[in-house]
Each structure stands twice: as C-alpha cells, then as structure tokens.
C-alpha cells in the first residue's frame, strides 16, 4: 500500500496532504496540519478529547481514517473562534469555570457546538446526552453543563447573523 494525496478543508482553508495508509485523522491534524488543539486522550474512541466536526457532524478523529476525509469540511477547536473573537461556548467555559487542566476542553466544546448548531435552545437532558461520550476527570461535569446552557442563552440574545 502506498501513500496517497487527500484534500479537505480545515477551518475554511484548503489542504492537500500526502497521507500514509491507515493514518488516523487525529494524527494528521496534529502532526501535519499543526492543529494541536485536537487532543489525543486514548486513541480508542473512549474519551472524546479528539472530537472534531466532519461535514458538521461531531466525530472522534482518533477513529477516522484520514483518507476518508477526502473532500470533507473539517472544523477543529482552532476554527471555533471567528476573527479572534471567541465563540459563545468558549466565553461561557471561561465564565463558568468549566475548564481546569483543559485537556478535555476542546473536545467538550466541539461536542457541545455540534449540539447548539442543530438545537440552539437545548434542554439540560440534551446537553447531558451530547456530552456523554466525553470524559472529564477534573470538573465533575456540572460546570460544563452550566457553560453549554449559558452559551445557548448567550447565543439566543445575539442577532442571528452574528451567531
């Protein structure tokens, strides 16, 4: 098996990369694209730290073969902020003290963002459900749930275009 070229957009930027067979998206993002904000906490789909959006769907990038990203639109934590302005979720994670060591944070925010993108006013149960694949060992989850609900409230107050 030989390496092959794969192209996708990463946070709005076109990428064309030479990829070895079997390489996982998490490693390609981190090592070849320098998108180090996507963390690898287990490499086996158990922790959610590597969550990114592939065509707007949250996925565990440690379980995605990089070659399958061909033609896809990939969003990582580096693309969550716009024009250096933090996304409401990021602001809320700071305000609600929803990050401690920070290692789970990018994955949590990407999982939560996928929820808010499709359900801008979620109930607590929906937030819990959306975060259920993400492990946090520091915060006890409560501040994270509070941050997601606070971000939803923040977004609801913004004019639609800004959101």
């Amino acid at each position: 098996m030989r390496s092959s070229f794969v192209s996708f957009t990463l946070n709005g930027e076109e990428k064309e990369l030479l990829i070895a067979p079997g390489q996982r998206l998490v490693d390609v993002l981190r090592e070849q694209c320098g998108a180090m904000g996507t963390r690898n906490g287990c490499g086996q789909g158990g922790c959610g730290a590597c969550t990114v959006h592939v065509d707007a769907v949250p996925m565990l990038s440690c379980l995605v073969l990089a070659e399958l990203a061909e033609g896809c639109d990939i969003l990582t934590i580096e693309g969550a902020a716009r024009d250096r302005t933090l996304h409401a979720l990021q602001e809320a994670f700071v305000a609600e003290a929803a990050t401690q060591c920070g290692f789970c944070t990018a994955g949590m925010i990407m999982a939560a963002k996928a929820l808010l993108d499709r359900d801008p006013a979620p109930q607590r149960e929906a937030v819990v459900e959306a975060l259920s694949g993400n492990v946090c060992r520091c915060t006890g989850y409560e501040p994270i749930i509070a941050a997601v609900l606070a971000a939803a409230a923040m977004l609801a107050r913004l004019p639609a275009a800004a959101a």
Binding site: G37, N40, I77, L86, Q90, F93, V94, T99, A106
Partner: peptide, 21 residues
C-alpha cells in the same frame, strides 16, 4: 479571578508536552 490559562484552554492553544513537533 478567572483562571489565567482559561482562554488558552478554550481556544485550543494551550501547549501540553506532546504538542510540539
């Protein structure tokens, strides 16, 4: 005071030991 590393954590720019090539 909000933690001084919080903004780096939420933006993914915090560098852990493995985040260097």
């Amino acid at each position: 005071l909000p933690r001084i590393d919080a903004r780096a954590h939420v933006s993914g720019s915090t560098r852990y030991y493995a985040d260097r090539s």
